[in-house]
Design a protein around this nucleic acid. Sequence first.
RNA 1: GCGCCCGUGGCUCAAUGGAUAGAGCGUUUGACUACGGAUCAAAAGGUUGGGGGUUCGAAUCCCUUCGGGCGCGCCA
Length: 552
Amino acid sequence: MQPEELLAYIKNILLSLAKLDNIKLVNLEKLAVIKPKLEEYGDWATNAALIYAKQFRSNPKNLAEKIVEKLLENSKIDKIDVAGPGFLNIRLKKQARSSVVENILQQKEDFGKSQILQNENINLEFVSANPTGPLHIGGTRWAAVGDSLGNLLLSQGAKVVKEYYFNDHGAQIDNFVNSIIAKYYGKPLPEDGYDGQYIVDLADKIMPEFQNKPQAEIYEQVRARAVELMFEQIKQSLHTFGTNFDVFFHENSLYKTGQVEKAIEELNSRGFIYEKDSALWLKTSEFGDDKDRVLRKSNEQWSYFAADVAYYKNKRERGFKTCVYMLGIDHHGYIGRLQAAAKAYGDNEENIKFLIGQFVNIIKDGKAVKLSKRAGNIITLDNLIATVGVDAARYSLIRSSVNTPIDLDLDLIVLHTNENPVYYVQYAYARCCNVVKNAYALDNILPKKIQAREFDLSFLQKSSEKDLLTTLALYPSILEIAAKKYEIHRVARYLEDLARKYHAFYSHLRVLPNTKSEIEPIHIARLALNNATAQILKNGLSLLGVSAPERM
RNA sequence: GCGCCCGUGGCUCAAUGGAUAGAGCGUUUGACUACGGAUCAAAAGGUUGGGGGUUCGAAUCCCUUCGGGCGCGCCA
């Protein structure tokens, strides 16, 4: 019996008890089945009595006894203790404990998937860096986290679109293009211009065909060409990093199709727009923003914010129920105004969400590297991949909560040691695969028995075996929690835990008999456990976009 | 000044309001002439920045204070 099944069972007991007493239970989502602190407590524990005692106008001990009485009617449950303030520690019967292995072997890559988010239609927007230079480390955190989070949400039944907002409109681009032209003719760069080897490379690539023509004539063509090349390079870097977007949305399209005017006209008809100092303002302060924001500047041009508003409107009109913005901490000031714009359209919190990623500090030679465009020491995504590899880079960025700043020590990540636990997890998988390979070599009856489910898992009674079983059973609930909270790092942490349990199991016990001994039922049971572990490691790593190598 | 985020062993980080706050690195000590030692077993190391409060129960929620990061344009 897996924890989800137990949870559903307990929930039903609570509801029927409540019905008897004519009570309507609230906060049912707080009910949890967890892994007990210590193994000797039992297989699973629940907080049911602690949480709902008050609603039953009872105390935890009394409610616990009522629940226990009902729970014991379940033939899969062996024994229950009421511990501490009112925890229920549940011990399953032998057979019920190992069903998770059969389920995993049955469902394979589908194990862990669910439909809990089937009513969600989510737009995930991330990276969205300006096409004025190579992707740097700031956008990289989201390239890893956003992509993996999308995979996770998808696995829980949500409709998900991964989207990149491509800022191909405005002064930054002008600056970028002028920098390329100036560089080519050896003229001084514009103020706030862009510099670096990539500007030289772009100039060499683009400019020769436009040589000796007046700048005014060629500007549009150079611009189109430069943006296109830069954009291709960014896409390619992301692709190499394993991050592929479903939609690249062009800011320019909002202007070309008149969506900016339309979006603002609607806000006007809702009465949230006014004119002051010959500019057009949105009353964002009515919805919690610090101050009102300009939509159309006094020079008649639309502000960047105007496009943002139109873009949000566009997403909602495409049918997304939830628009998720993944921003760097340096952009958290946008939250107030965008949220306000959403509310001005009559939307609420569930329609617009923000994930704020803290900075990634790069450590080199024991010191933080100050990233500065001027100094030309920007660390790009391509640099990072070249020095540490995709797996190590992605994993390092994913395994921490986004609201924790992380220090990436480049000298340590490259080492193939536990400084980067990705190798620890991958090694566990490689070990599993090696055992399978050895099993084939030993006797091909073994894989056949696994295939035919001819094994008896009740032989798995050693503590390292039970520990591994319990951890495997936790996988679906980890995905569920991680998806509901938009916290992909939980999956990585879980995989480390699973790898640890596997390594311990592997070290203490032999899966296969050595060549001089007979194959016994215990070996077949352990092989099944080995294969189930391999499957979960692979499933989890694939959500993270990290490879699962069979050999290392 | 105002707003947001953060503060957990020496270091890097975990922990749906749950039991004795967990891992890895580093330090110390052990373990294969049997499935890969990129492993395992064990030890030392914590008043979760400080103070108050809510709760049966707080690293987690509230208040306050200290420290750090970031943001406060008719820039994009």
